[in-house]
Design a protein around this nucleic acid. Structure first.
Lengths: 140, 140
DNA sequence: GTAGAAGTTGGAGCGCGCTCGAAGTCAAGC
DNA sequence: GCTTGACTTCGAGCGCGCTCCAACTTCTAC
């Protein structure tokens, strides 16, 4: 069952896979976000395991929802500590989730005001046929 | 019809009304986000008109959807320039709107991954009856 | 008049999350 | 051997959006 070859990847492979830069990957590691120091080749070049990469992908989801580095660090610390603190991990994630949902709602609320403004400008554009070329807008 | 008394407000009133700090209000003004320099009392204290306040409120909506100061400045410059550039204002707002919608979708997508993680931890919590007090979680 | 609160300016400082530069190491190809 | 290029470390730098400080003026209450 050695079919899943699980090739260890270099930092630029992982950068490409995750959408982060190599700089950022090193930064995350320095910041203590990795579960364990990333493995090294004899040349001291980093060699990421599949698990490392999956973890980094999770980090990108957390960052992508605005979780601060400091809090991701807390979560990583909990996971690194091993079994027994699952409730605290869950609480941390749920708190984050609630915060994100709140932010989403607020952004939507603010966006509605902007939508209204847009609607006003559209009406305004209808009233005045406008200067030449008003129709070359991209109707995206 | 002079019933709308339109009292001019001091900076701390406006801070309270808008949720910004007085510091931030001054900062926005310095950054060129106001349509015109805010009026002053004889004492050189700022006196915000209703229009000023409405504009600041709009600024908070733009900021609240993540529009950078630099771009808000562009929008303010257009409005300040007066009639004739409504299309550019509209385009600016629509671009922003599209960007925000994209970001919302991506945050939601990332959040789904986190939700999945949360679900896993919840199952995990069910399997092991866990240490005392595991049921005092808020069932939000 | 006088104390204390609240406003003014200009510029410095901060927290965040990267981002970059410099100098060095290592492996592969010519 | 030598070059090229991808990697390493450490620390500095940056862009953003505030946030605060210091020194000063002015309003308000007593």
């Amino acid at each position: 069952m050695a079919t899943t070859a699980t090739a260890l990847r270099g930092i630029s492979d992982v950068a490409e896979e995750t959408g982060l830069t190599a700089h950022t990957l090193r930064y995350y590691e320095r910041a203590g976000l990795m579960l364990e120091p990333v493995g090294r080749a004899s040349s001291s070049h980093r060699r990421y395991s599949d698990g490392d990469v999956r973890w980094v992908v999770l980090l990108t989801k957390l960052r992508g929802t605005g979780m601060p580095i400091r809090q991701i660090k807390q979560y990583a610390d909990l996971v690194r500590a091993g079994a027994g603190n699952e409730e605290r991990r869950l609480a941390l994630l749920e708190e984050h989730r609630a915060r994100v949902l709140g932010q989403l709602r607020e952004v939507e609320r603010n966006l509605q005001a902007i939508d209204h403004k847009i609607a006003v400008y559209r009406e305004c554009a209808l009233e005045r046929p406008a200067a030449a070329g008003s129709d070359q807008r991209n109707a995206a």
